[in-house]
Structure formats: C-alpha cells, structure tokens
Simulated scan of single mutants.
Amino acid sequence: MTDLATLEPPTFVFPRPALPSVPVRGERAEYPVRRIFCVGRNYADHAREMGVEVDREAPFYFTKSPLTLVHTGARVPYPPGTQNYHYEMELVVAIGAEAYQVAVADAPKVVFGYAAGLDMTRRDLQLEARGKQRPWDFGKDFEQSAVIAPLTRAGRFALADQPIRLTVNGAVKQDAHLSDLIWSVPEIISHLSRYYHLGPGDLIYTGTPAGVGPVVAGDAILGTIEGLAAVELSVGAAA
C-alpha cells in the first residue's frame, strides 16, 4: 500500500497560472477571482436598443474566464476577429461568503464589495452568434474583455440610486442610474445561487445601460459610479 505521506508533490508541464485578483480600495489586500458571471439585458433601454423585448421573467447570464480580467488604467490592443468593438459600463458585485439558495432579503449579507467595470464586447461576433442561436462566447469571452476598478467594501458603499456613466474621449455615451436595473443586486444573487454554489472569488457584472457603442484605436474610455473608484481603459492598435 502506498504511503501518501512519502509521495512527492506533483510537478507541472508548464508554470501553473496565478489566480487573477482585484485590489481592494484603500488596502494592501487583494481579492482573488475564481469566476466571472455577467447578467444580460438588465436595463430596459439597453434591451430595446439591442432590438429585443424586455424579459422580466428571470435574469439570464453568460460567463467570462477569470483570465480575461484586466485592471483599470490598462491600454489594450484592439481585439482580433472583430470590426465592431463595444464598451459596456457595469456595476460589479464581489461575493464574500458562501451562498447557496439564498433568499433575496439575505443576499446583501454575502456581498464583499462593489466596483465599476467594463464588459468589452465583440459586438459583430455576438450578434452573429445570436442570429444563429449559438452561444455568445466569441463575442464576450476573449482576452482583456473584463475590465475592473479596485473594489470598495460593502460597508463603505450604500447601494441606492447612484448615477452610472461612461464617456469616450470626454463625450458622454451612457448615463443612467443603478435604480434602473431590471433585476436588483439582491435578486440577481438570490436567483444565481439557485444554480451555483456561490462563494468568495465570484464576481457578477450586473448589466449595462443603454448607449453602448464602438471604440477604435486611440480612444479613451472612462466609466464612473458615484461612490466607487472609476474604471478607465485606452484602446491601442491591433496586435
């Protein structure tokens, strides 16, 4: 019988990637990220601008790999395979406790913090997939497509009717309020926790307001939510 205590630890055929993390505002600590969930069409005006009916039956989701995460202030190359690269400004929620089948009333208790984020999108690939009733992965889950600012702990940010805005080269493109969300943060957490064992390391991008649009090399994006650190991104030439 093999003595497990005498076994050498495993080696890897290439260096094991480090877990991505997000700085916590005002602290040296960082929040390690294991999963990224994104809510689709969670503002009525955005659903309409995308040419679809507002769905109030239940929220729906897509995912991004944690390896798509990029910190605010980055300069990223225009991504391959697209001619229609879009910004989407979003409130991001970071889960801080185990959460499975959580009631709406209890959902705020599992929130670690909040951040401003960008769900960058290859819109032409997303719409092509949607038209063929295929998954959105090519349009949504690609390198450096989940941009995030430092997290603010939940105790330092009272979620209410804060403005959520985005500018490109100083021109306002998105301008709404968090109260415009179709599905609130507690409702999203409660619903998602019926299907996943949520826990520390899970980020939820909660959806984007109307006004999404394209950016090109040389553009500078600035997204703000009152009370949170701003998120910034500049677009470079295609690599």
Rank of each mutant, 00 (worst) to 15 (best):
T72R: 07
D119R: 00
G207L: 10
A146N: 05
P214Y: 03
E128K: 13
V168F: 05
L192Q: 09
V92E: 10
T208A: 11
V76Y: 01
R194I: 03
P214H: 05
H197K: 14
I204V: 14
G199V: 07
R153L: 13
L178M: 11
F138Y: 12
A97E: 14
F142G: 06
V215P: 00
S190M: 05
T121F: 00
A94T: 02
N169Y: 07
P209G: 04
Y195H: 15
L125W: 02
F112A: 06
L203M: 04
E143T: 13
S193L: 07
I188Y: 02
Y85Q: 10
S145Y: 05
S145E: 10
V185M: 01
A129Q: 12
Q83V: 12
G117A: 06
Q174S: 10
G213T: 05
P108D: 01
I182D: 10
S184Y: 03
S145D: 09
P163T: 11
T167S: 15
T167D: 02
G155N: 11
G131C: 00
L203D: 08
G211H: 02
I182V: 15
A103H: 13
P77A: 14
A146M: 01
R156F: 10
I148C: 07
A171G: 03
Y78W: 03
G73T: 04
Q162H: 15
G113C: 00
H197C: 11
W136M: 12
P150H: 06
D161M: 09
R165Y: 04
V185H: 01
D175M: 09
F157V: 13
F157E: 10
H177C: 13
H191M: 07
V102I: 15
V172P: 02
L125C: 02
P77F: 03
V147R: 03
K132W: 03
H71W: 12
E90V: 08
G170N: 12
A160I: 04
M120L: 15
